[in-house]
Computed example of a mutant assay.
Amino acid sequence: MRRKIIVGITGATGSIYALRLLKILSSLNDIEVHLIVSSSGVLTLRNELDLKINELYSLVSVVHNVKNIGDVLASGSFSTDGMLIVPCSIRTLSAIANGLSDNLIVRAADVSLKERRRIVLMVRESPFNLVHLRNMISVTEMGGIIFPPMPAFYHKPVSIEEMVDHTVIHAIKLLNIDIPGPVWKGI
Rank of each mutant, 00 (worst) to 15 (best):
L22P: 09
K23Y: 03
D30V: 05
L25S: 04
I36A: 10
S39D: 13
L35Q: 07
I6A: 07
I5H: 01
E32R: 11
T10H: 01
L35S: 06
N29P: 12
R3A: 00
E32P: 09
G8F: 14
G41K: 14
V37I: 15
I16Q: 13
R3W: 01
S26A: 14
A18Q: 07
V37Y: 08
I9L: 11
L35R: 09
E32D: 15
R20A: 09
G14S: 08
T10A: 00
N29E: 14
G11T: 05
L21F: 08
H34A: 02
V33K: 14
N29I: 02
I31S: 11
A18D: 01
V7R: 08
V7S: 02
V7E: 00
R3C: 00
K23D: 09
I9F: 10
I36P: 02
V33D: 11
I24W: 01
R2E: 04
H34K: 00
I24Y: 01
S39G: 05
L25C: 04
S26E: 09
S27C: 05
V33A: 10
D30I: 00
I24A: 03
E32Y: 06
I6M: 02
I36L: 14
A18H: 08
L25K: 08
S27D: 13
T13I: 14
S38R: 07
E32W: 03
I6P: 00
V7M: 10
V37L: 09
K4D: 12
E32C: 01
I31C: 11
G14Q: 13
I36F: 11
L22F: 01
S40T: 12
L28H: 05
S39P: 02
G41E: 13
S15L: 05
R3S: 01
S40Y: 15
I16L: 14
N29T: 06
I24R: 03
G8R: 12
K23S: 06
A12K: 13
S15V: 02
S39Y: 13
N29L: 11
I31T: 11
A12Y: 04
A18I: 04
G8N: 10
K23H: 10
G8I: 13
S26G: 07
G8Y: 13
R20H: 11
A18V: 04
I24G: 00
K4S: 11
L19D: 05
V7I: 15
R3F: 00
V33C: 10
I5K: 05
K4V: 10
V33P: 13
N29R: 12
V37E: 07
L28M: 15
A12P: 04
